[in-house]
Amino acid sequence: MDAAISLTVDGEGYRLTVDTRTTLLDALRDRLGNISPKKGCDHGQCGACTVLLDGRRVLACLVLAATVGGAEVTTASGLAEGDTPHPVQRAFLDHDAFQCGYCTPGQVCSAVGMLDEVAAGWPSHATTDLTAEPRLSQAEISERMAGNLCRCAAYVNIVPAIEQAAGEVR
């Protein structure tokens, strides 16, 4: 069963017909050739497929493409301004916040979405006072990034990278 949808991906408009079973992740990678989001587990457990969907971080492997027609998708490859990396990307480079790099596009998109959530005042499981404005401690970053696994265990560098980026994005 097919569905015709339009998508804006990293600023480019597309019209495509997809089988209703197609995930957003497969549509991006296999149909649109955008291999920035990665297929790690394909079951919503690793975070490697994280993209921004209408500005919110989501797992592209659990979104059926046909349900998000008209949406605006940003992948890690669409975050840079020309040759200038996004502050989160710059911070990952500065802090060597990866080893093999497979989880990195997901980590970066997740961090960008997460910093927006913090800016909007969203609490997390690590937030002691639910009614106060959250402050981005290392514990807060670890908790808020818990959905992105790194099998190389670059976490010790990812957390400071995000701390740096948080200072710049604000």
Partner: peptide
């Protein structure tokens, strides 16, 4: 309703909670 908000925050990940 701290107990309800905390229950939701204790579940899944940021990405999954957005979905």
């Amino acid at each position: 309703y701290p107990l309800i908000v905390q229950s939701v925050l204790a579940g899944a990940s940021g990405q999954l909670r957005n979905m």
